[in-house]
């Protein structure tokens, strides 16, 4: 084999390899973005159906904002929404406090960091239905407590805390402890050290923890089903309407379109906030 033919051969092999890689990348992108579309297509379609004059028809014919006006006349959704907001605010506050208390110290602990983190993140790998039924059995059957808003707050908190903690740790694990030591050397009191140095640097983590808690609570369903008692949250209202195959499907579409838009806006905002803090 002469040097020239060998060169030619190597060149062709390299070209074939590049082409194969190109095909692989295209397949990857089609699959990846295709599945991402599977997430968002239903949300977009939800919005389309909410303004379709016949939401039960396959192809939307004409569009109307009438269903949204209907929200003012049929206000059964209002009470569940208020309950949901109350719970979400409580969970959000709990998340902010606990994520701050735990998240700011956890990266500095000398012992027991890994098992503690594992215990806190455990709900991420326990299916919601298991948390729901277990909380019900323990608090209702063994401790004979009445289910209600408090048990909803509890299960929502169990679900949201790992996310809030992660949001906090993203910020706090980059925190330079030497700043606090320097402040102590300069005679700052513990409270002043926290307020003047830690607080400003950790604020975005606290805000993220609160937003995660709020959003996860607002849309939580699988755990709520078991522990709601007679309380009805907005997702439970949606769920009940879905299961009864009622004729109020247009109401559900409108309501959830609004909720989805708010959720998407808030979550984009909180992730963006966190990203900006990490970069700077």
């Amino acid at each position: 084999m002469t040097a020239a033919t060998f060169d030619n051969f190597a060149h062709r092999a390299a070209r074939r390899e590049a082409r194969l890689i190109g095909i692989a990348i295209w397949l990857t992108l089609i699959a990846g973005f295709g599945i991402t579309t599977l997430i968002y297509a239903p949300v977009v379609w939800l919005g389309v159906l909410s303004i379709s004059s016949d939401p039960l028809a396959g192809l939307p014919g004409s569009f109307t904002l009438g269903w949204y006006y209907g929200l003012f006349t049929d206000t059964r959704w209002l009470h569940p929404l208020i309950v949901s907001l109350e719970i979400a605010v409580a969970v959000s506050t709990l998340c902010m406090i606990s994520a701050t208390l735990v998240g700011r110290v956890l990266p500095r602990l000398k012992r027991g960091r890994a098992p503690l983190l594992a215990a806190f993140l455990l709900p991420l790998v326990v299916p919601g239905i298991v948390v729901g039924i277990d909380v019900f059995i323990y608090y209702k059957m063994f401790l004979t407590l009445k289910m209600g808003i408090w048990s909803l707050i509890l299960v929502h908190f169990i679900w949201a805390f790992p996310f809030a903690l992660i949001g906090m740790l993203v910020v706090s694990s980059r925190f330079d402890v030497r700043l606090l030591e320097a402040a102590a050397d300069l005679g700052a009191s513990p409270w002043r050290r926290f307020w003047d140095i830690e607080r400003p640097l950790l604020t975005s983590g606290v805000v993220t923890a609160g937003m995660f808690g709020f959003l996860l609570s607002l849309t939580e369903l699988p755990r709520s089903i078991f522990v709601a008692g007679h309380t009805q949250t907005l997702p439970l209202f949606t769920w009940a309407e879905t299961m009864s195959r009622g004729s109020h499907v247009s109401l559900i579409y409108c309501l959830n379109t609004i909720i989805a838009i708010v959720s998407i806006a808030l979550s984009v905002l909180s992730v963006w906030l966190l990203g900006r803090r990490v970069k700077s």
Binding site: P42, V43, W45, L46, L49, L215, L216, T219, L221, P222, L234, P235, T238, W239, T242, I252, Y253, N256, I259, A260, S263, I264, L266, S267
Partner: peptide, 10 residues
């Protein structure tokens, strides 16, 4: 952060 039942129902 999306309601699981609403997006599935669609």
């Amino acid at each position: 952060f999306l309601d699981p039942s609403a997006r599935t129902l669609v």
